[in-house]
Nucleic acid binder design. Structure first.
Lengths: 96, 96
DNA sequence: ATAGAGTAGTTTATAATATAAACCAAATAT
DNA sequence: ATATTTGGTTTATATTATAAACTACTCTAT
């Protein structure tokens, strides 16, 4: 009846991040923090979880002497997002 | 950018229950357990949370000598569900 | 009449999550 | 020089979800 929802994505912040990343080539930590309105600590934790799940790739470097964290969604991440979207529709488009 | 998701509804089981209840006059505990595939314990807890939030009404009685728990969604619950549906669409229908 | 299995749940304990608070290292501003 | 800001990470705490254990009864068979 109800397909299980990927617990990695069924989280407000992680879903926000993935939702942003699917439509963008790459995104910086600070941009994600601003767009999601999250705290840096929470974002840091959730980005690592997404990376552990293989849904995003995190590239760390320096720019203008400051640390720079860039994130990109992976193919696996896109697939997982699409599956999540399809699944949650079962919950929100209730049958008449 | 991303509207916050009602934490009462952003739970797989509670969302399943409310999704079922919006399209039905009333539902019995056992029917909800079967439809959602949840355990009785988990369902019991989550139904009480929905009731505490004022999203459903729980009526307890007896039928054929057995306890009978019936659930109905409230107007508040319908409104909350509709708001949740609208909000999560922002997450899953990413802008191009 | 009573032992065993089944029904319909509730309560309690545990594991997982989300979040915030505190912290760190380096850079820049005063 | 020291204070503040940037760009994060780590740790601690509160909340959640879930499962396991339990309660209270009923039905059936002996």
């Amino acid at each position: 009846m109800f397909a299980p929802l990927d617990p990695v994505l069924h989280s407000q912040l992680r879903l926000s991040v993935v939702s942003l990343l699917v439509s963008v080539r790459a995104a910086e930590f600070t941009w994600l923090r601003e767009k999601t309105g999250s705290t840096a600590g929470n974002l840091s934790v959730q980005l690592n979880k997404l990376a552990e799940a293989g849904y995003i790739e995190i590239k760390k470097s320096f720019r203008d002497n400051y640390p720079l964290t860039e994130c990109k969604i992976t193919k696996k991440g896109i697939k997982a997002f699409e599956a999540y979207v399809n699944n949650i529709k079962q919950y929100i488009h209730q049958k008449k």
